[in-house]
């Protein structure tokens, strides 16, 4: 009896050391980007995609949903910040959290879809994102700027927004790290694996799912807001572009759903690859993104981290 109770401690030690190490490297690296004069734009988007893919992972990897209309949260966040700053003269630092609130409100509106599963959920999510786009496109021009979009004016601060994006990423990763070890996280995973069985084991499935869903919706909405601030312009074509969903999903899957490190690694690898391809063959960029997705699904369906853990199951306890 002595060995089984002592073993988890050493595993936990490795786990926390690894987490601290990886978190530290990530933190120091990104914090020094503007200081060392590295490419701010590239790293801004890298952090954005890490956040998006990680938050998506909560809905998909933890809760078992495939929201193919994930861009809706991003878009609503982008427009919330843009409208509040431009039309209501809100300070950006007040507008950004309100973007997150807007994402949560939208997620609550979509909450009834959580009783759907599999492709039905995916298709409905897609349709709802389409409705969001159309509704915003057809709102009066005084509010959303119509098809021209909204210019935020001269309020852009690239470096400031870079560090805000970094803060958002850190908070997102911290929340997901907590979630992965928490009781809520276990309840979510049980619900993902077998919702009825989880319910009969005492898990309040609708509530647990809703929490997962809200966490998953909050961060993309904030990301949308920060990006709007960073680029200074928002329009429906880009803010609700299905490619945003596509990239989020692909990056998350590439790294491996269900682990904390997966989507981070996936985003880093794929954004870097994307940049490389884009620089070499700008025309082929989209084509290669599509082909990469196909190859990924066919040959690495569990992603980088997922495949590794399948080969080395005993590492599951060490890798966050």
């Amino acid at each position: 009896m002595a060995s089984p109770s002592r073993a988890p401690d050493s595993a936990d030690r490795i786990y926390f050391t690894l987490t601290a190490l990886m978190g530290g490297v990530l933190l120091i690296y990104f914090a020094s980007v503007p200081l060392l004069g590295l490419n701010v734009a590239f790293h801004f988007y890298l952090m954005l995609w890490i956040t998006m893919a990680s938050a998506f992972n909560v809905a998909s990897g933890f809760a078992g949903y495939m929201p193919f209309g994930y861009v809706a949260f991003y878009g609503i966040g982008a427009f919330t910040t843009a409208i509040l700053v431009k039309k209501a003269a809100f300070p950006v630092f007040l507008a950004l959290p309100l973007s997150g609130v807007a994402g949560i409100v939208l997620a609550l509106l979509f909450a009834p879809t959580l009783r759907l599963s599999g492709i039905y959920f995916g298709i409905v999510s897609l349709a709802l994102a389409g409705i969001c786009r159309l509704v915003i496109t057809n709102m009066p021009e005084e509010i959303t700027g119509g098809s021209f979009g909204l210019q935020l004016g001269s309020r852009a601060h690239p470096v400031q927004s870079f560090y805000v994006m970094m803060a958002v990423m850190v908070v997102a990763l911290a929340v997901i790290l907590w979630l992965s070890r928490s009781r809520l996280g276990k309840a979510l995973r049980a619900t993902r694996d077998d919702a009825d069985a989880a319910e009969m084991m005492g898990v309040n499935v609708p509530i647990v799912r809703l929490w997962g869903w809200l966490i998953s919706a909050f961060f993309p909405a904030v990301c949308g807001g920060v990006e709007a601030w960073y680029t200074n312009v928002v329009d429906t074509e880009t803010a609700f572009n299905t490619l945003i969903t596509a990239k989020t999903v692909i990056y998350a899957v590439a790294g491996g759903l269900g682990t904390v490190t997966g989507p981070v690694l996936g985003a880093v690898a794929m954004v870097w690859l994307d940049e490389l391809i884009w620089r070499q063959f700008p025309l082929l960029n989209l084509l290669i993104l599509g082909l990469a997705t196909i190859v990924l699904v066919l040959f690495l369906p569990r992603g980088i981290v997922g495949t590794l853990l399948r080969k080395k199951p005993q590492w599951r306890r060490y890798i966050p």
Binding site: L284, N285, L286, L289, G290, L291, T293, I294, L296
Partner: peptide, 8 residues
Amino acid sequence: GVSIAAAA
């Protein structure tokens, strides 16, 4: 992915 690739 096929859709993105085909459109591209």
